[in-house]
Design a protein around this nucleic acid. Structure first.
Lengths: 149, 149
DNA sequence: TGCGATTTAATCGTGTGCGATCTATTTAGC
DNA sequence: GCTAAATAGATCGCACACGATTAAATCGCA
């Protein structure tokens, strides 16, 4: 299992950064999987919870801005989380176009149960917190540049 | 401070690197989208073609090792590419368990039509080739460490 | 005040990713 | 040789992502 037996052919230079991000994202999700499975969460659901722990009662649009996802992805995701009893979705009484997503008691309690995950991932990364934050800044900068278009 | 109308709340430090990769991957796919649409390709299909341009006639398993995907993802993806006339799938005569994926004439011609894409993406990234390669190495290193588990 | 433009979610269809399982083929041990 | 184990793809079910469209609510301006 630690013997690749096949050497993947080199990709053209400019493709490799895209493939690096692509495969690193998958590896990251793989690292989170066992930790999240114990909590019955998927990776995007966990990210949504992290956002809500930071600020509860966000609208679908605000969550979309935070997670960079559209309503066509968020609506079914949030419905599944509501079915699990993690959040409550309710139309804003002031502006009925908006749907506010609020943590339930179970959703708030999940924060304590997930408290060790960041440290776990930091350990698995084999990097210091400083190195990880520096890498994060570079990746964010690339992302923002790509978005600017 | 050109703050947009909503400031996404800060995520805990160790989560931010995972979210950085997650959103940068999406931004990267978004940057490729218009270029690939003109060729009638999706992003994973393009990655599969890049791998095959590097080495034609790989087995499904070899492609999976190169792209870090399992057969449950690759089989339908390759079937769609075969339906589009980009590749041919055929059982290996020596070992009928294996399926070899071979570029068609259209698949080979696509390489010339896609030749400008890497330069295009490099430009959109706003980085020098050297900076991009350095970032790639850091991301690859993190990915490999996470895989080591 | 009235009504078209805008904003916000929801819906629909297609294409990944992946865990779990299944089938066909090959290899290994006796 | 013959069967158990291993290997390689394929299949199934579920959960994202996202382009395109739709429906409801609000806003803006004559």
């Amino acid at each position: 299992m630690d013997t690749p037996k096949h050497q993947p052919p080199a990709l053209p230079a400019a493709e490799m950064i895209c493939f690096s991000l692509y495969s690193a994202t998958h590896a990251m999700q793989h690292a989170y999987k066992p930790l999240l499975e114990a909590l019955g969460l998927t990776y995007p659901q966990y990210l949504a919870l992290v956002a809500l722990w930071g600020e509860d009662g966000q609208t679908v649009g605000q969550l979309g801005a935070a997670l960079q996802l559209e309503s066509n992805t968020l609506t079914p995701l949030l419905k599944r989380m509501e079915a699990q009893g993690l959040v409550v979705r309710a139309r804003d009484t002031r502006d009925e176009r908006q749907v506010r997503v609020t943590l339930s008691a179970a959703g708030r309690e999940m924060q304590a149960r997930a408290a060790d995950i960041p440290r776990c991932i930091l350990e698995k990364s084999g990097l210091t917190l400083e190195a990880l934050l520096a890498l994060r800044d570079q990746v964010n900068s690339l992302r923002d540049q790509l978005r600017a278009d």
